[in-house]
């Protein structure tokens, strides 16, 4: 794999994570449990879509075939998506959505922190901008996970169920492959082992305060960031997200 190919792949991972999660979060619009949450969820989705425009925009530049961020978002099929399995999981109830958010935010925050020191200035600049937003995302998602974990019996039960359901998707974030190794060697991406330790410290503290129990299993589902085997959910998301562009090719909107 050339460095350019690895860089392109890596940028797709960053951009597809924010694209797919931003889309998922935006599905809540108008349906949240309380008005303040509706506003906050829309805000998170907006930030993530903004980050997508930057990551996929840069990916298109690096690829050099003239594809824009929109082309990449709207005209790739499932196997070309490079997002983590975690972010394509359905929203479930509000607790499941916030648990998914919190797990991703904790990873995302640590990742972006390291990316602000990337040897590639373009990446460092996007990471710095995104980091500010994601710091706020984690504040909010962790607070909500804590509040609901340590709330009523029912809210506790639901949050534990959400954690148990989503935990198998945590490992993929930290399992390095050839792309991660190439980016580490290029001084762009962090060492995922070290990142995992910082993630664990954060998540352990949140889960303790939330009175939730971290599952014993270390089993990790995989296939999202490599694109080898996504879940069935992603295809359904793309049928909605890409529908207009696919149905009316060549139209400007």
């Amino acid at each position: 794999m050339t460095d350019q190919t690895a860089l392109f792949e890596y940028l797709l991972r960053l951009g597809d994570n924010t694209l797919v999660l931003g889309h998922r979060v935006s599905e809540w619009c108008g349906h949240a449990p309380v008005l303040e949450e509706d506003i906050a969820l829309a805000n998170t989705a907006l930030d993530l879509i903004g980050q997508t425009q930057m990551w996929l925009g840069l990916a298109g530049e690096v690829e050099g075939s003239g594809r824009s961020a929109d082309d990449l978002a709207m005209h790739r099929d499932v196997w070309d998506f490079r997002n983590l399995l975690l972010v394509e999981q359905p929203n479930g109830d509000f607790g499941q959505t916030l648990m998914r958010q919190c797990l991703f935010d904790a990873f995302h925050l640590e990742l972006l922190t390291d990316l602000t020191r990337a040897s590639d200035d373009r990446i460092a600049a996007i990471a710095a901008k995104a980091l500010k937003e994601v710091t706020y995302h984690l504040d909010r998602s962790s607070e909500t996970v804590i509040g609901l974990g340590d709330g009523t019996e029912e809210s506790h039960r639901r949050m534990q169920a959400a954690l148990d359901l989503l935990w198998p998707y945590v490992g993929e974030m930290f399992t390095p492959d050839a792309v991660d190794d190439a980016m580490l060697a290029a001084g762009i991406a962090p060492d995922l082992k070290a990142l995992r330790a910082r993630f664990d410290t954060r998540i352990d503290a949140i889960l303790t305060e939330a009175t939730l129990t971290k599952p014993d299993s270390t089993y990790a589902q995989s296939g999202g960031k490599t694109g080898f085997r996504h879940s069935e959910h992603l295809g359904h998301m793309l049928t909605q997200m890409q529908w207009l562009q696919r149905a009316y090719p060549g139209a400007a909107w």
Binding site: L19, H23, S26, E27, C29, G30, H31, L35, D38, I39, A42, N43, A45, L46, I49, G50, T52, Q53, L56, A69, D70, A73, M74, Q240, M241, W243, L244, Q245, W253
Partner: peptide
């Protein structure tokens, strides 16, 4: 909100989301 997940471009999606978020704020 019915069209946010089907917005044709990332920019249109962001603008529509921001708009619907404003409406919640107005409420």
């Amino acid at each position: 909100g019915n069209w946010i997940t089907r917005a044709p471009t990332l920019e249109r999606k962001a603008i529509l989301l921001a708009k619907v978020q404003d409406e919640a704020g107005h409420g």
